[in-house]
Design a protein around this nucleic acid. Sequence first.
DNA 1: CTGAAAGCGCTAACAG
DNA 2: CTGTTAGCGCTTTCAG
Lengths: 336, 336
Amino acid sequence: MAITIKDVARESGVNVSTVSRALNGEYGVHSDTRELVLAVAERLQYRPNRVARGLVTGRSHTLALVVSDIRNPFFAEVARGAEDAAYASDYDLVLCNSDLDAEKQLRYVESLMEKRVDGILMNSVAELSKKQVEQLSNVGVPIVLLNRAAPRNAFSTICADNDAGGVLAAEYLWKLGHRKIAHLTGPRHHGNMTERANGFVRALSEARKPVKPVVLHGKNNFQGGMELAQKLLAQHEDVTAIFAASDMMAFGAIRALMEAGKRIPEDVSVIGFDNVELSTIVNPPLTTIHQPKYEIGQAAVEILLRLAGRGEHQAPEHRVFGVHLIERRSCMERKS
Amino acid sequence: MAITIKDVARESGVNVSTVSRALNGEYGVHSDTRELVLAVAERLQYRPNRVARGLVTGRSHTLALVVSDIRNPFFAEVARGAEDAAYASDYDLVLCNSDLDAEKQLRYVESLMEKRVDGILMNSVAELSKKQVEQLSNVGVPIVLLNRAAPRNAFSTICADNDAGGVLAAEYLWKLGHRKIAHLTGPRHHGNMTERANGFVRALSEARKPVKPVVLHGKNNFQGGMELAQKLLAQHEDVTAIFAASDMMAFGAIRALMEAGKRIPEDVSVIGFDNVELSTIVNPPLTTIHQPKYEIGQAAVEILLRLAGRGEHQAPEHRVFGVHLIERRSCMERKS
DNA sequence: CTGAAAGCGCTAACAG
DNA sequence: CTGTTAGCGCTTTCAG
């Protein structure tokens, strides 16, 4: 079997507790002893068993990230930020894909609890029942949400200023002269996307000449964007501008638009949300709302670690990151 | 504190071992007893502590995935396949980003060992020293490599038929009439990419009229593709076709080419490798070599689980997936 | 500064 | 079929 702390103790002629102290760099160990122990551990190629350690300390040094789908470039970026931050603090990150399925999400959380993860970072499904919220609040580990899925003060949250992003998109399109506008968004009750839609619709309704956009719900991915754009074209051929709630949806919409013989931006302007790396390479390069994805992931684990550090429940923390518009070439003025 | 197996035992008037047996659905428990225990566990909201369980069983029910960067859509896809397969078998997947840095990779592996993961799936850095290979072989858990990084038979491997993919690209370009050809690839000694280059160069050299392509090494990402294409343009303006070792690099190359005023495919043809989802949305849609990313991730954990199931070292397993060319619109015949 | 001993929560012989 | 017992490998009082 693997070599344990006992072997090191025996081999260096001290007690296991001394080995433990020496290895963990605690005070109260003579430097000679410490060096001896360290040398023996090195010689024996001793590797501590974190599982055993976790059993007694009650902390697993593991965090979890639950996203709907890691293939979404937005989440990949968040994941990288989160993992880097976790790595920096010597924590591991377990990855879960929920597909925004409430039941799957719950199963994941349960399983993660049994593994005694020290914190969970997730973009939760939004339609949480009272019971589910309660269930989640009582799991006993800090949870940071990547969206506003639940009543304020149930969990800590961290996200971009989605509402402001929606407003930005609305003002931009309006100023360009568009009046026949559509918004392609994700499933109903999708925390972040709902806020984007809210900001967008509100800003448009408060414009000098109020506009009421067509709002279509679908899947938040390439496929979803395509389908919605097709549906839109069938129902409202006269639309001149589209705000997609994510870049992936925008890509899908562009694809459908092009297949239908529309030119972008001459016939229809498209603006996205996220500013994923690939938004520069589509043709035309996508105008979009930038949100700091990597930083969100990073900040989220920092909050998690802080929460996990102290003991019990404490006031949830809410952090929102600013967004800004990146003007590229998928939108143009409406000459009417 | 959390409620334990002892509480359940006390509350149902049986011994902890009986509770353990009942909970784990083992034989040799009277159905009345089992039902009683289950009911009590349910009532008490008992949640087993997997850490404790892991300590005694020696298995953590956790796998690890070490990739260079999850933001690379190729790895995101592999990760999703792997995670789905792990989830199906009730295993967790921890995510690590190595940046193909040998030291970071080793640190990860060490840390994962201390956590007693049951298996590691990784795309290893290729320039492993003898010592490192040995070190890795002796970690005691099964490792499946996503590339051919080490001497055969050191580890199990699973990957696409990279060499064949290179050949496919070469034949295609050659048949289109291209004779001034470049290959943009990743770092030297990158397992998979080296094989792609080998197949490509060899096939070209064996053509009826042998061609010797320019081969440039750089980073395997969008940025790297851009930089290499710029470099290429500066050195070999007359190139008519480019084979990029990954779609991300192809995207970067296309971007640089366009910025330099080149039309694709009229002035230069570009072919990629991977067939990531977004390759359909760039303009022009990218011709590329398809490899089954999701399936690779999935198959890798299946192998891992099989290996982890049995006891000790066994003959490593090698599996290679077929590839095929997807013809889109980024390549055209060379009229000369 | 160091050793002895208890115990984290669970499983796994071994009896009965 | 069920209880007793002994740990898994480590940390953590509590003495000394």
